[in-house]
Nucleic acid binder design. Structure first.
Length: 343
DNA sequence: CGCGTTTGACCGGCGC
DNA sequence: GCGCCGGTCAAACGCG
């Protein structure tokens, strides 16, 4: 992998235990206001340094106001509060690390992918960045040096700079959209998320029998891309990585599929809104799935985000009222139609 | 015919 | 400089 250094996090809980614990860890209440409990059911249970110094999500969000700070927060909570060495040797990814680039300085716009599928588990975001999820079960974080340099530069469309015949100026590194990856226990590789994607590449993954597919949003001028690969360690797990932010509403929404998908928020919603929506999405769906037998839906399973998305500079705590605000935007319906529309 | 997929070639970054 | 590797391009192809 070029230009990307990684922090490696493993977890050797049995898989189902892992997912269940993840859901509990991301209890909706604790998601925004409480510290993750290190109780018997927390997947962080046996991780050291989970104590009062472990920031709440609110603290985590509020701690970021500029690139450098964000960068520090990139390592938090998992990378700084959890002793990394204790995470090595685990054979399953339970926590991602976020990295970010200069995109945090751009004007936020777009909506996160949503799911019209009532039972799918796919969550998404464009708000955070995480680099490669190595197929050998490691989560890699973009190198600090690269990231910091990127943070110093003005946001530009990263891929444009890489265009053929459009070489970047000297010293200019490729800009990356914020990324967010999550793992989904699923039989299908390409999870339906409400957007239309065009596959533009497929590459064999080193040390893995499963290829990695590259998709681009088919909407014109929408820069969002996503990568889909299957974990070779657990072929039932699909690792999906979103990059960028949608500049449009979901086609499903535009088609008026209100029975499946509530109206999507305006595409110019702040980044953190989409972020929370996505995080909620992954959480709520996971929670809902946690209460339902896996085999009730063979295609889609549980989802766990592999990274905590980064808030924008003006990130603030999402309180209950904020959640209501999200609801006002139809976000909750948008992200969890399976919950909203369930009989 | 339009749209999406496949697939080999190519590019650029990085490590040695 | 060279090779490896991730990522992207684009022509060919398939499908409805």
């Amino acid at each position: 992998m070029s230009g990307e250094k990684g922090e490696i996090y493993h977890h050797d809980h049995p898989q189902h235990h892992l997912f269940r614990d993840y859901n509990e860890f991301y209890d909706l209440a604790s998601l925004f206001s409480q510290r993750p409990t290190a109780g018997a059911n927390s997947f962080l249970h046996d991780l050291p340094s989970i104590d009062a110094s472990f920031p709440t999500f609110a603290e985590y969000f509020n701690s970021t106001s500029e690139h450098d700070t964000i960068y520090r927060s990139v390592d938090a909570p998992f990378a700084s509060n959890v002793k990394k060495e204790a995470l090595h040797g685990m054979d399953r990814v339970t926590s991602g690390v976020i990295s970010n680039n200069s995109s945090v300085s751009r004007a936020d716009s777009g909506t996160g992918p949503t799911t019209p599928n009532s039972s799918m588990s796919s969550s998404s975001t464009e708000a955070a960045a995480m680099d490669d999820c190595k197929i050998d079960g490691m989560v890699k974080q973009e190198g600090d040096e690269e990231v910091k340099q990127e943070a110093k530069t003005k946001f530009e469309e990263g891929d444009k700079a890489k265009k053929l015949n459009k070489p970047r100026s000297k010293g200019e590194k490729r800009q990356r959209q914020p990324r967010f990856a999550f793992m989904t226990k699923s039989e299908v590789d390409h999870l339906e998320d409400g957007y239309r994607w065009r596959k533009y590449g497929q590459k064999a993954v080193k040390n893995s029998p499963y290829p990695r597919s590259y998709y681009r949003c088919t909407t014109q001028k929408c820069p969002v891309k996503k990568r889909v690969e299957r974990s070779y360690q657990d072929p039932t797990v699909v690792i999906t990585t979103y990059e960028g932010k949608h500049t449009h509403q979901t086609p499903a929404t535009l088609r008026g599929s209100t029975h499946l998908l509530a109206p999507a928020p305006p595409p110019n919603l702040p980044l953190h809104v989409g972020f929370h929506r996505d995080l909620l999405m992954s959480h709520l769906v996971s929670s809902s799935m946690a209460t339902a037998p896996m085999d009730t839906n063979p295609s889609y399973g549980m989802t766990m985000p592999m990274s905590l998305p980064l808030p924008p500079p003006a990130q603030r705590m999402v309180s209950r009222s904020d959640q209501n605000q999200l609801t006002d935007y139809g976000l909750l319906q948008d992200i969890v139609p399976s919950l909203i529309n369930q009989p």
